[in-house]
């Protein structure tokens, strides 16, 4: 297991928290919660070791496209980068959905 913390600047706040996914084979769990700082703070725990650079790239790209101030917790059980991006998009959608 490995864990990382990435922080990026952010400006827009989100309406509500979101929870998606499961810590199961090839999947991950994401918990997205609003914060009142001008950053997005992403803490990751992953089952698969040795892919810090990939995680950094995926997170950086996603939050450049989605400017949200939030605390993001990711519990990963071997999701592919594509899966990670889709779950993140789902979490953002849920957090803005009535």
């Amino acid at each position: 297991m490995e864990s990382f913390l990435f922080t990026h600047p952010a400006t827009k706040s989100i309406d509500r928290p979101a929870h998606v996914g499961v810590v199961g084979s090839g999947d991950l769990e994401i918990i997205l919660e609003p914060n009142d700082q001008a950053t997005v703070e992403v803490s990751i725990r992953t089952h698969v070791t040795g892919h810090k650079a990939t995680w950094e790239a995926v997170i950086k790209r996603f939050f450049e496209q989605h400017d949200i101030a939030a605390n993001v917790k990711i519990n990963d059980f071997g999701a592919t980068p594509g899966m990670v991006a889709m779950r993140l998009a789902q979490a953002v959608e849920v957090s803005s959905y009535d």
């Binding site: 297991m1 929870h19 769990e29 918990i31 725990r45 992953t46 089952h47 519990n75």
Partner: peptide
Amino acid sequence: LEKQGIVPQS
């Protein structure tokens, strides 16, 4: 779980 290198769930 974390002590054993297993990712927990919330």
